[in-house]
C-alpha cells in the first residue's frame, strides 16, 4: 500500500507537526521505504501469539499512594517559555472575555 502526501498531511496533523511541501515529498519516499520493508512481518503467522509490550515480562509493582515532597511551583515553572502568576501562559483558546465557546 502506497503512503501518499495526503497520508503525510494526515499524520502530521495528528502529531501536531507542520510539514512543508518539500518535506512532505521527501517523507513520502522515506516512510514508504520503511513501511514496505516492514511488510515482511506479514510472512509470519501471529494469530495465536501474545504481544510483548514491555521489555521484562513482570507485573508492574504497586506502591502506597502516599504524598512525598516534590517540586515547588516556582521550580516546576522555572523553564517555561512564558509564565504569569505561577501559571503557564498560552494563546487564548476560548473566545470572548470570559466564558465564551471553544474556538473550534
Amino acid at each position: 500500500m502506497g503512503f501518499t502526501v495526503r497520508d503525510v498531511r494526515h499524520v502530521a496533523r495528528l502529531a501536531r507537526l507542520a510539514v512543508s511541501e518539500k518535506e512532505a515529498e521527501r517523507l513520502v519516499s522515506d516512510l514508504n521505504a520503511v513501511l514496505t520493508y516492514a511488510e515482511q512481518l506479514n510472512a509470519l503467522t501471529t494469530d495465536s501469539v501474545l504481544p510483548t509490550f514491555h521489555g521484562l515480562g513482570r507485573a508492574m509493582p504497586l506502591r502506597e499512594d502516599a504524598v512525598h515532597p516534590s517540586f515547588s511551583p516556582e521550580r516546576a515553572l522555572s523553564q517555561a517559555p512564558q509564565v504569569k502568576d505561577a501559571m503557564f501562559v498560552v494563546p487564548r483558546i476560548l473566545e470572548g472575555d470570559g466564558e465564551g465557546g471553544a474556538e473550534e
Partner: peptide, 14 residues
Amino acid sequence: AYYLRAEKVRTLIR
C-alpha cells in the same frame, strides 16, 4: 497491521 503485529513478533524474538 503494524504496531500490534510488531509486538507479537517481539514475543517470537524473545
